[in-house]
């Protein structure tokens, strides 16, 4: 139980996917303008991460490893993720149309979110067990959501700031992200 907690919290805080591993920067910069879309994206990514882990882990250990096909990991995983995103989109459209409406735009974007592929590959690389992998995916997803939500707050304040012309837009956003990332560095060493 203790190791689970450590995996969960370290995936969320110390090894935050966005701010210390640089995965999923694209949605981080693209979708963090508003609080509710940031939270929606976070939920969708967490969900896909967990589902992708649940599917890819048995595929890797049950099909690819026994047949000596580990090198196909990348191809298979990305296909599974693409498939899953499609599936989630279709299922959500039928069952929970309200949630689908609010997330609709962001769902297809998840396929190219490197955090999702990253988490599935990392689970295999780190040799996690099935349950540990799911916990890691949950932590990674929650960490992603946390950084997105925090950053959306920072960006709202930034809209009122008087920034030099050259820095307007992306440069200022990146420098703000750098400061948020410094604050997350405070978590390092939490579990050592």
């Amino acid at each position: 139980m203790k190791t689970m907690l450590v995996i969960l919290l370290s995936a969320m805080l110390t090894d935050n996917f966005v701010l210390s591993k640089f995965m999923g920067i694209c949605p981080f910069l693209g979708v963090s303008k508003k609080l509710d879309s940031a939270a929606g994206m976070g939920v969708a990514v967490t969900f896909v991460m967990i589902c992708a882990t649940i599917v890819t882990y048995p595929i890797h250990h049950g099909i690819l490893v026994p047949n000596g096909l580990e090198y196909l990991d990348t191809v298979v995983f990305i296909l599974v993720i693409a498939l899953f995103v499609q599936l989630v989109e279709t299922a959500m459209k039928k069952t929970i149309p309200a949630l689908y409406k609010s997330l609709g735009v962001y769902l297809p974007l998840i396929t190219t979110n490197c955090a999702v592929l990253g988490v599935t590959v990392l689970n295999i690389d780190n040799g996690y067990s099935f349950v540990q992998s799911i916990v890691n995916a949950l932590g990674g997803g929650l960490g992603f959501m946390l950084s997105l939500v925090i950053f959306s707050g920072v960006r709202r304040k930034m809209e009122y700031a008087d920034i030099p012309e050259t820095f307007k837009g992306v440069p200022a956003t990146l420098i703000a992200a750098s400061i948020v990332s410094v604050s997350f560095m405070g978590f390092s060493g939490l579990f050592s």
Partner: peptide, 18 residues
């Protein structure tokens, strides 16, 4: 460190813009 990466990229893009 990660923070420096964000900062450097922000600066370089700003210079490119300029």
């Amino acid at each position: 460190m990660p923070a420096g990466g964000f900062f450097t990229l922000g600066m370089i893009i700003a210079i490119t813009n300029k």
